[in-house]
């Protein structure tokens, strides 16, 4: 590829859920070795974007290129080869509930490598130590709190030392201490191992502190992008509203709906009432 510097490149990416347009021509470049943050109001499609990059959803139009390969034109076996080099931290952890913490982290190692159990043991403990849960190795996922589960999932995502990791809201449910540790861990992993990181997060302070570049999504488009300082200084109303958390501005707080007054006067019951 000409742009060897860019690991993930989306061009004119469009995606619909039924009739609802989630993305409408999104162009994103993610540089190798950088930490890129994707921010935007809840429900704009940040998780959807990660799934498009991972090849779990197919765009209606446009392309996603990861490491020079067009994700949606690969055959299944090629896609799986590519995914071995991608780590993904799911919003809710998505640990395998029939395995304990240790086996969850060991899972990708056992599936993809021929390492001895002895070596796997060392690797798993190293990853668990990094997220502060070495002592929790014998717990089952049902015995973990949400924040702990997400940290185990992080240990699992880095088990294979991938070339890139996508973090879907890694900071939710973390106390200030583990939050600080996680922020430093993500930066450290990125710099020490030469990873490329994509972070979806709502936490403005911590995201600005570690991200090299930030994309702000709203209404199916990239509405602002740049480094943290650039965004703070930018004249974009979108960026200003989002960074300051103001209710009024171009970014809608509400899910698309008909007029409020009409809706109240109309008095049609919602679907949930008739079903439950």
């Amino acid at each position: 590829m000409a742009d060897n510097n860019i690991l993930v490149k989306t061009r004119d990416l469009s995606f619909k859920r039924g009739d609802r347009v989630i993305f409408d021509g999104v162009d994103i470049d993610i540089r190798r070795g950088s930490v890129t943050a994707i921010m935007g109001p809840s429900g704009t499609g940040k998780t959807t974007l990660l799934r498009l990059i991972g090849g779990q959803l197919k765009p209606d139009k446009g392309s996603v290129i990861v490491d020079g390969e067009n994700v949606h034109e690969l055959r299944r076996s090629q896609l799986y080869q590519l995914r071995k080099r991608m780590g993904m931290l799911f919003q809710n952890g998505a640990l395998l509930t029939d395995l304990n913490v240790y086996d969850n982290v060991a899972f990708p190692l056992r599936e993809h490598t021929n390492l001895s159990e002895n070596l796997i043991h060392k690797l798993v403990l190293m990853k668990l130590e990094a997220v502060g849960l070495r002592g929790a190795r014998n717990l089952m996922p049902s015995e973990l709190s949400g924040g702990m589960a997400r940290r185990v999932a992080l240990a699992r995502a880095i088990a294979l030392d991938p070339m890139m990791i996508m973090y879907d809201e890694p900071f939710t449910g973390q106390d200030p201490i583990s939050m600080g540790v996680l922020v430093r861990l993500i930066r450290l992993l990125n710099d020490a191992l030469g990873l490329t990181s994509i972070i979806v997060s709502h936490d403005i302070q911590d995201t600005l502190s570690i991200a090299d570049e930030i994309y702000l999504l709203a209404g199916g488009k990239v509405v602002a992008k740049g480094s943290g300082d650039e965004l703070k200084q930018s004249s974009s109303e979108w960026a200003q509203q989002f960074l300051k958390g103001q209710p009024d501005g171009p970014v809608p707080f509400h899910f698309p709906a008909e007029d409020y007054a009409d809706d109240l006067l109309d008095g049609k019951p919602g679907r949930a009432q008739t079903r439950m």
């Binding site: 080869q81 071995k84 294979l160």
Partner: peptide, 21 residues
């Protein structure tokens, strides 16, 4: 339930085909 809790998706992203595993 594995599907509902995204365990199948997580396997796919770990490059492990849930159909096989």
């Amino acid at each position: 339930l594995m599907k509902a809790t995204e365990q199948l998706s997580a396997m796919e992203m770990m490059a492990i085909d849930p159909v096989h595993r």
